[in-house]
C-alpha cells in the first residue's frame, strides 16, 4: 500500500492548475490565425471605405451637384467604387456570425467528440465542464472583440458618408442596420454557442454544422422580423398631397386615415395631384396618410433590445450545453459518492 501513497512532494503544495489557454491556442491555431486575418482584412477595408473612398465619392458628388444643365465631368468611378466596397464590407461584417457558427459547429466540439479527443482531454486532469468552459470562453472573448471591432468600424465608415454622399445608405437599410450595431457581435456569440450545442448534441461534424447554421439563420431571421416591434413606434399623419407618407425610418405600418380617424393599412396610391389617386382616396374617404415608424432616434433602443434578446438566447444555449454534457458524463458531484 505504501507504494500507492503519493510522495510528500506531490501533496505538500497545492496542485498546479492546468494551462488550458496554452493548450487551446495550440489546438486551434489555424482558426485563431484565420479569425485574426479576417478581422484585420475587413477592418482594413472598412478604414479604406470610410476614409479615402468616402472622400473621393463625396468629392465626385460635389462635382456632380455643381453641374449645370449643359453637363460636366465628375468621377463616376469613385462613386461606384465606394458603393461596391461599402456593400462588400457590409456583407463581410454580417457574414462573420455565420463563419463563426460554421467553425464552431464543424470543428470546435463535434469533431473532438467524434474522434474521441474530447474524452482524451477529460481523462487528463480536466473535467468535462472545465473543458467546455475553456472551449467557450476563449473563443467568446476573441469573437466579441473581433466582431465588435468590425461593427464599430462599419458604423464609423457609414457615418463618414452621411450628408456628403447623395446615395449613402440610410441607417434603416437592412444590411447597414445589421452591420452597424451590437446585435451582429451578439449574433456571433450566439453562433459560437449554437455550434457548441449542436456539436454536443450530435457529436458529429456534419450534422452539427447543418444544425447550428440552421439555428443561427433562424435566430437571425426571427430577430430581423421582430426588430420593428421591439420598441414603441412613432405615428405621424401627413397630407395626401405628398406622394408618400412623411417620416423616414423603419416602417411598422403605413396607410390612410379616413375622416372618422380610422386607419386603413396600405392602399397607398400616390399624390392627390394625380387624378386617379384623388378618385381612389375619395372613394375610401381618406383625408391623410399615417405612418407608424421608428425614427433614427430609435436606433440604439432597437439595437440594444435585439442585442439583449440574442444574448439571452445565447445564455440559454450555454446552460443547455452544460447540462447536456453533465448528463452524458455525470460530471456533477454525486452527493452519495462524496459521502463515502
Amino acid at each position: 500500500m505504501t507504494a500507492l501513497a503519493p510522495s510528500p512532494a506531490l501533496t505538500s503544495r497545492p496542485a498546479r492548475s492546468p494551462h488550458l489557454l496554452r493548450w487551446l491556442i495550440r489546438l486551434h491555431r489555424p482558426a485563431l490565425l484565420a479569425w485574426i486575418a479576417f478581422v484585420l482584412v475587413v477592418g482594413g477595408l472598412l478604414l479604406w471605405v470610410g476614409g479615402p473612398l468616402t472622400d473621393a465619392s463625396a468629392e465626385a458628388w460635389k462635382q456632380y451637384n455643381a453641374c449645370g444643365a449643359d453637363g460636366c465631368s465628375y468621377d463616376v468611378k469613385a462613386i461606384g467604387r465606394y458603393k461596391d466596397w461599402y456593400n462588400y464590407t457590409t456583407i463581410a461584417v454580417i457574414a462573420a456570425p455565420f463563419l463563426v457558427t460554421a467553425w464552431s459547429g464543424a470543428a470546435l466540439v463535434s469533431r473532438e467528440l467524434e474522434s474521441g479527443t474530447a474524452q482524451l482531454a477529460w481523462t487528463q486532469a480536466v473535467s468535462p465542464a472545465r473543458w467546455l468552459a475553456a472551449k467557450l470562453a476563449v473563443p467568446a472573448v476573441l469573437i466579441a472583440v473581433g466582431s465588435g471591432l468590425l461593427a464599430g468600424l462599419h458604423h464609423w465608415a457609414w457615418s463618414t458618408g452621411q450628408g456628403r454622399i447623395d446615395t449613402v445608405k440610410g441607417w434603416h437599410d437592412l444590411g447597414t442596420y445589421a452591420a452597424n450595431g451590437t446585435a451582429t457581435a451578439a449574433m456571433a456569440l450566439a453562433g459560437l454557442v449554437s455550434g457548441v450545442f449542436w456539436g454536443l448534441y450530435k457529436r458529429e461534424p456534419y450534422s452539427a454544422l447543418f444544425g447550428s447554421l440552421m439555428s443561427t439563420g433562424l435566430l437571425w431571421s426571427l430577430v430581423a422580423i421582430a426588430t420593428p416591434h421591439l420598441w414603441p413606434s412613432v405615428s405621424k399623419v401627413s397630407s395626401l398631397t405628398h406622394s408618400v407618407p412623411a417620416g423616414s425610418g423603419i416602417v411598422v405600418d403605413q396607410g390612410l386615415v379616413t375622416s372618422t380617424g380610422k386607419h386603413l393599412s396600405g392602399h397607398l396610391c400616390g399624390s392627390t395631384t394625380y387624378g386617379h389617386c384623388k378618385t381612389v382616396y375619395a372613394k375610401l374617404d381618406a383625408v391623410g396618410y399615417y405612418n407608424d415608424y421608428h425614427p433614427q432616434s430609435h436606433y440604439w433602443p432597437l439595437q440594444l433590445t435585439s442585442t439583449a434578446i440574442i444574448l439571452a438566447v445565447t445564455a440559454a444555449l450555454t446552460v443547455a450545453s452544460f447540462s447536456l454534457l453533465k448528463r452524458r458524463t455525470g460530471s456533477a458531484p454525486a452527493r452519495k459518492a462524496a459521502a463515502v
Binding site: P6, L10, R13, A15, R16, S17, P18, H19, L20, R22, W23, R26, L27, A121, Q124, A125, V126
Partner: peptide, 13 residues
C-alpha cells in the same frame, strides 16, 4: 506537442 498537451492539461503529478 501532444506531450506538451499532457503537461498543460495535468497537474504537477
Amino acid at each position: 506537442e501532444t506531450l506538451r498537451m499532457g503537461a498543460d492539461l495535468n497537474t504537477d503529478r
